[in-house]
């Protein structure tokens, strides 16, 4: 990801177009389109947060759905207790979205520190497997958690409250999500070039060299993991609000896999690329089945089969993903 001042015209045009269309979509007045775009923005947030560990740190976390799910469950559990008029661990439940952000950050952050402390001692395939294992543990925990409806999940009757923001209004909610994403991307772009970001990237490049230079790289990787988890949990809070639903599926390995696919499709290590990846993935998920059904009735169900070859093509010919195709591969 280049600095703003170093971006070529293709970068600038792409950013301008993306921002412009993101700002204008609600004005189409098409409720379906706004909902779809909201979903894209939320997954864009989760995917670029994942890119902090995957792209910058070179750590393939196959368990990021855990953080997404934890964020979503904060919303669900708060809603349920508020609805029942019961307390949660003796505390009054809150439906304020900012309180829920904070809670999600604490819970996901705690989980990230505890699991990351173990995962980050390993590398490569072991890392993938251990992150997956921790996420699966959490998945089965929520599946068997009767108190919160087990695998049926929790249906929400209303969105979280956003102070003077009327989040129940689809357009307001959309802009709220967009603001979260833009804030994170600005932060991430700064982070990329900061001292911290350089150390994390250096540790991906050659961890041994970084340690010999004097960097305790484990601490930096753990911090990146923590940051990534916290932001992903924020996306989880938003996702629950977007869908009016929370269930164990949010923590499943399919979800973790989808997030990785979005990052790879969009462009690993570019932070902005995963936004494009999320858009492409969700548009394919939404429209490809219908398109396939036109060719053969019932073929739509198998849209995922086309995703495989697409990923192979990206892996072989476009290492910087969709972003690389659009803006060129020069850094």
């Amino acid at each position: 990801m280049p600095r703003l001042s170093e971006m070529g015209w293709r970068w600038r045009i792409l950013l301008a177009l993306a921002l412009l269309s993101a700002l204008l979509i609600p004005w189409t007045g098409d409720d379906y389109l706004v909902k779809l775009a909201t979903r894209i923005l939320i997954f864009a947030l989760a995917a670029s947060a994942l890119d902090l560990v995957l792209g910058l740190g070179g750590l393939v976390s196959f368990g990021h759905a855990a953080f997404l799910g934890l964020g979503a469950y904060v919303v669900g559990i708060m809603f349920l207790h508020d609805f029942e008029g019961t307390g949660f661990l003796g505390l009054a439940p809150s439906q304020d979205i900012f309180v829920q952000f904070l809670l999600a950050a604490l819970v996901a952050g705690g989980f990230a520190l505890a699991t990351g402390a173990v995962c980050l001692r390993t590398r490569g395939v072991a890392f993938i497997m251990i992150t997956l294992a921790f996420a699966q543990m959490l998945f089965f925990f929520f599946v068997s958690l009767r108190r919160y409806n087990g695998e049926d999940g929790i249906a929400l009757w209303n969105r979280s409250r956003g102070g003077w923001l009327e989040l129940e209004d689809q357009r307001t909610f959309y802009y709220f999500v967009l603001a979260c994403l833009v804030l994170f991307l600005v932060f991430a772009a700064r982070l990329y070039h900061s001292r911290f970001g350089r150390v994390v990237r250096g540790s991906k490049d050659n961890d041994r060299r970084m340690r010999a230079l004097g960097f305790p790289t484990y601490r930096y990787r753990l911090t990146a993991y923590l940051l990534s988890a916290v932001v992903t949990s924020i996306a989880g809070v938003l996702l629950a609000n977007a869908t009016y639903f929370v269930g164990p599926a949010y923590l499943s390995w399919h979800m973790s896999g989808q997030l990785i696919v979005m990052v790879v499709l969009g462009g690993i290590g570019t932070l902005f690329g995963p936004v494009l990846g999320a858009a492409l993935f969700i548009l394919l998920e939404e429209f490809l089945p219908d398109v396939l059904d036109l060719f053969a009735a019932g073929a739509g169900e198998y849209w995922m089969l086309l995703l495989g070859p697409l990923l192979v093509i990206v892996a072989l010919f476009a290492r910087r993903g969709l972003l690389g195709v659009l803006v060129g591969t020069g850094r």
Partner: peptide, 10 residues
């Protein structure tokens, strides 16, 4: 310290 997250190190 390298726990600095904003300033452009480059």
């Amino acid at each position: 310290s390298s726990f600095r997250f904003f300033a452009d190190a480059g």
